[in-house]
Amino acid sequence: MGETPDQLTQDIEQTRGRLGDHLDELQDKVSPTAIAGRQKDAAKSRIMGVRDKAMGTARSAGDSTPSASEAADSARQQVAGAPIAAGVVAFGLGMLAAALVPASRAEQKTATQVKDAVQEHAQPLMDDAKQAAGEAAEHLKGSAAESVQQVKDSASDSAQQVKDSASDSAQQVKDSGPTPTR
């Protein structure tokens, strides 16, 4: 623990630097562009190796690119050991294809039928909900009217009691007569 604040700050900065380097390496490993580039380079290298063996020629920078069937075979070999990567790639391609292809007439017709069926089945539920809300409102309206009447009656009774009490007090003062003065 005998580290000074300056040493701790320096250690933190070094750790941040290493962490940044590790994150950059990790991003390069999982970046789809980098993965595709590595696979392309590996496929090209394998094809060049096969070609060199078959033709006995030296490799050069201007060699032709592989045919589509060779590239597909190479891609299959690349993902053969990585089923998750193959699944992710296939899923991505499927999503891309689905986004690019417009809905067919059969899909549009089915979607319309589903929409109509949902509306047909939802309408009775909506009607029931409206009826229940109306009944609840009527019940609350009646309860509210009763409560208002009770408050009015209570206020009227209280006012009458105050009036009667005031009259009784006034009568008692009158009955006691004037107080004798000395």
Score class of each variant (00 low, 15 high):
residue 153 D to Y: 02
residue 100 L to C: 07
residue 1 M to L: 08
residue 8 L to G: 03
residue 99 A to C: 11
residue 162 V to M: 07
residue 167 S to D: 13
residue 119 Q to H: 05
residue 169 S to Y: 08
residue 144 A to P: 02
residue 122 A to R: 08
residue 154 S to P: 07
residue 30 V to R: 05
residue 160 Q to M: 08
residue 63 D to Y: 10
residue 109 K to I: 10
residue 3 E to A: 11
residue 142 G to F: 06
residue 14 Q to V: 01
residue 63 D to G: 08
residue 64 S to N: 12
residue 20 G to V: 01
residue 4 T to A: 01
residue 23 L to F: 02
residue 1 M to E: 09
residue 136 A to C: 11
residue 176 S to A: 14
residue 158 S to F: 05
residue 159 A to Q: 04
residue 138 E to M: 07
residue 84 I to Q: 06
residue 20 G to D: 05
residue 163 K to T: 03
residue 62 G to V: 14
residue 104 S to W: 11
residue 99 A to N: 15
residue 19 L to D: 02
residue 14 Q to L: 02
residue 136 A to T: 15
residue 50 V to H: 10
residue 84 I to H: 10
residue 5 P to Q: 01
residue 28 D to S: 06
residue 15 T to H: 01
residue 69 S to K: 12
residue 163 K to F: 05
residue 106 A to L: 12
residue 1 M to A: 11
residue 160 Q to K: 08
residue 59 R to P: 04
residue 2 G to K: 05
residue 76 R to E: 07
residue 32 P to V: 04
residue 41 D to Y: 15
residue 78 Q to F: 06
residue 135 E to V: 13
residue 142 G to W: 05
residue 113 Q to Y: 03
residue 75 A to E: 08
residue 139 H to G: 01
residue 155 A to T: 09
residue 87 G to Y: 04
residue 149 Q to E: 15
residue 36 A to E: 04
residue 44 K to P: 07
residue 173 V to M: 14
residue 92 G to W: 03
residue 56 G to N: 08
